Amino acid sequence: MASFGAPDRARDFAIVGRRALDAEAFRNAVATHLSGRVGSNRDVLVFVHGFNTGFDEARFRLAQIVTDGGFNGVPVLFTWPSKGSLFGYGSDREAATASRDAMEHLLLDLAALPDVGKVHVLAHSMGSWLAMEALREVAIAGHPDLDGHLGDIILAAPDIDQGVFRQQVERLGPGAHISVFAATNDRALGLSGFLAERPRLGAIDSTSPDGRAALEGLGVHVIDLTRDSVGLIGHATYASVPEVIRGIGAEIGASRAGDRNRQAVLGGEPDAPQFEKLPAPVVATPLPAPQAPAIAVP
């Protein structure tokens, strides 16, 4: 995204097209992009933005993560109607709460597509709470692992009460693969915890006795970004440090057993070390209603 003037398509992210899609057309569009792909290129990455984040900022953030992380599957942006204001925390919390069912439907729709591989979820800040609540609803509905399609769950600076998180994880079951990017010097989460009088997951110190006790038995992988903190507030470090973004890409793009035969499908040797990289699609849907969550494929 250009800071000033018109974007340079050789260096900046730019919007080059837009088309409206209803729910059925959206599913068909994603299915079309998945068709013919093999291995981990059949995966979908669902990104959920956080507090005080508008639609434009969210889609450019996803474009950055996909590009810098080297993700070769299909990226999907789940947007919810954030007020886009530092003083709109309460309003955003209500909007995130109202968006849980929509995200649940999205996850189930993606998992039901005929050619889909794994469905990964990357969520930031308040979006982490929304994502975990939607996954909890999916589990209650009888699909705790999205019928075998649930991939990595990555929570960046999650604004989630630690006790609530335990309940969410226990509902998902022991098979969930969850990573948490945390920082003890995240000032946004420090304020959130102070106001709620409850510690937030994204500010946990996994090396302390209290931190270890909070995570005990959950099987959650915690990555401490305290030393890598960027900016005065330190709430978006996960997307500001190149090594972290590359780590996210490596995590969700890691080769699986079925990938060994990818080149055989493409006409090469089964064990060839280099795989063809397929481009990500450019598709989007608008907000279906003034206060309804939106789904997009950037």
Results as ranks from 00 to 15, higher is better:
L150T: 04
I160K: 04
D161F: 09
A157I: 01
G193V: 11
G151F: 00
V169R: 13
S179R: 06
P158D: 06
G193Y: 05
L189D: 05
E197M: 13
G193R: 07
R198M: 09
G173I: 13
Q162M: 13
L150G: 05
S179H: 02
I154Y: 06
N185T: 12
R171D: 06
F165S: 15
R198L: 06
H177N: 14
L195V: 12
Q162Y: 04
R171H: 09
N185K: 14
I154G: 08
A183R: 10
H177T: 14
A157R: 08
Q168I: 09
N185L: 06
D159A: 11
D186C: 12
Q167S: 14
S192R: 08
A188S: 13
L150C: 07
R198S: 12
A157D: 03
R198F: 07
P158H: 10
A183Q: 03
G173C: 02
L150E: 04
Q162V: 13
L172K: 10
T184A: 08
R198N: 02
R166H: 00
F194M: 15
D186F: 13
I153F: 10
T184Y: 04
D161M: 03
G190Y: 12
P158V: 08
A182S: 04
P158R: 02
F165Q: 15
A182H: 05
G173Q: 07
T184G: 06
R187V: 10
V180E: 08
R198W: 00
A156P: 08
G173S: 07
G151T: 01
V180R: 10
R166P: 02
R198E: 04
E197K: 15
Q162P: 07
V180M: 05
A196Q: 05
R187C: 11
E170C: 08
L189Q: 07
I153K: 15
D161I: 06
R187Y: 12
A196R: 13
V180P: 04
F165D: 11
F181S: 12
Q167P: 07
G173A: 07
I178D: 00
D152E: 12
L189T: 09
L189A: 08
L191A: 10
A183N: 01
F181C: 10
I178P: 00
I153Y: 11
D161Q: 03
L150M: 10
H177A: 14
N185Q: 07
L191R: 08
E197Q: 14
L189F: 03
R187H: 11
A188Y: 05
N185A: 01
E197D: 14
F194W: 15
Q168C: 12
L155H: 09
R171N: 08
I160H: 00
Q168K: 15
L155S: 07
A188T: 09
F165C: 15
E197P: 05
F194P: 13
G190W: 13
L172F: 06
Q168S: 15
Q168T: 11
G190K: 15
A176F: 01
A188M: 11
L155G: 07
L172H: 01
P158E: 09
A176R: 12
L155N: 03
A176Y: 02
I154L: 14
A176S: 11
A157Q: 06
G173K: 01
N185V: 10
V169N: 09
R171G: 00
N185W: 02
V169F: 03
D161G: 04
N185M: 04
F181W: 12
L172E: 03
Q168W: 13
